[in-house]
Design a protein around this nucleic acid. Sequence first.
DNA 1: ATAGGGTTAG
Length: 579
Amino acid sequence: MAQLHVYETLLQKCKALSQIKQLQAYLTVAGVLPAVAGIRVKLLEVCSLAPISALDHSQLLFAHTSSRTTNDYNALLRGFAASDEPLQALTFYPLLLRSPSRPDALSLSFALKASARLSDLPSSFQLHSQLLRLGFTPDSILLTTLIDSYAKSGELQDAEKVFDEMPKRDAATWNVMISGLVQGGRPNDAFKLFEQMCDPGSPARPNEVTVIAALSACAQLGAPREGAVVHSYARAQHLDVDVRVLNALIDMYSKCGCVDQAVEVFRSIERPTLVSYNAMIMALALHGHGTEAFYLFKEMVKPGANEIEPDAVTFLAVLSGCNHAGLVNEGLEIFMSMKISRTIKHYGCIVDLLGRAGRLSEAYNVITSMPLEPDIVLWQTLLGASKTFGDVNMAELVSKKLAEMGSNGDGDYVLLSNVYAAKERWAEVGRVREEMRSKDVRKVPGFSFVELDGVVHKFLNGDKGHERWREIYRMLDEISVKIKVFGYVPETSNVLHDIGEEDKENALYYHSEKLAMAFGLISTQDCETIQVIKNLRICGDCHLVAKLISKAYDRVIIVRDRARFHRFEGGACSCNDYW
DNA sequence: ATAGGGTTAG
């Protein structure tokens, strides 16, 4: 009889279920299966994991095994946890608890993986208590998995508690904690942890994964200075030879408003991967360089040695680039050329593309004839376009659809009301506002922030909470005098309420981004770029004011809004007023 | 009967 490890090697080499079955038949006839536990478990593992992933077959095998070991269970658990239905791992796990076998560290590890992928907090709690009862607390790999599971379930406090109480933490432990904080919306704390890890006294040294997570924190913060710190650290430690680190750098620079640096990093990559292209196309799209995004896409898919197959993310990136640059035909061409299946987001891009171009009925037809169920966001996109083009009929039609779908987003009401307001149909404006009041829908407050020497200065509309608010308002007055010379006329059509023109001007006057820009002007040097981050989309009036400030004060202003960047210089914006 | 299991950019 052949050595057992030969069978293992053969099993390992199987690329299809048919090959597995042949081998299985042979092993059964030879009397190896199901008797030899090692081979049986190996067979289960190979069946359960990629590239075979035949979990049905694994379950059959498992059902025909009479004396099961923990490892038999683990092989299946592992497969379930990695499958696209991780819930199966959590329903299977109790069978192990009720069997004569005991769960070991691996069983817990796979179950925790499943609860992480499902963001299922209750099972993370349960598995944590079992981990304690079974005495696995000295197992730092298992605790790392537990931290990850807590973090991915949104329970950062417990993740931190486990992290803090661990006697020994290696780089991976720090990494799960840092990326957990990033994904949980606490990029500041993530960055602090990265700094701690960089300290010469720290027992764990940051690696590629750490740097990627730290860069993602900086991207989320829109903090180019911190990003540059991470970049120099990566360079010093020679971690920037890893293409994933370079890709994270592209993303960080682009989200921090520095497209040029993002381009520089992209150009330095010898063999850009799919993700490199995606990050770069996305960066160009974000900054309104739609034509460049389009050509980079063309370059990427050009037949030849470096040809790369675009995926769903690529199409989203290039389509949004076309959107923000008004490249309607290019966008449609790309959409038509898609060979992979389209998601609702791709349709969203096309609706946006047509809508922005004023082709509202075509956009409507796309929504009603597409093979997917339209979602709220899709209709909201069309509602936004109806508002832009003042199409009352379309706005009413779409609002009705939205109401039917049970949407009660504040934006829907505000947009519809704005359509009416622009036509001075105040009765309807009042009706919409009354509906908002009765359903207790409130407008999400707009805010902007400016980061200065590591301190974040936040402004709400009409905010007087800042310690220098008097100076800020004085600066606003100065700005309004100065920009009138350049022909400023307030764009009051975006103001929701039926109030007098003068009050409307005042409502616009104190928009958070204006306060932020005024603060930027009084607190930075004459040549410095002012960076503002805003939670909503920038309004037309603020956009106009930003352009005029950039001219009147000879300043570069970069505004990152919800969807993209605007770079104002010399009286013009990088978006060419199309956004 | 051993080992196996953790982090990662668009």
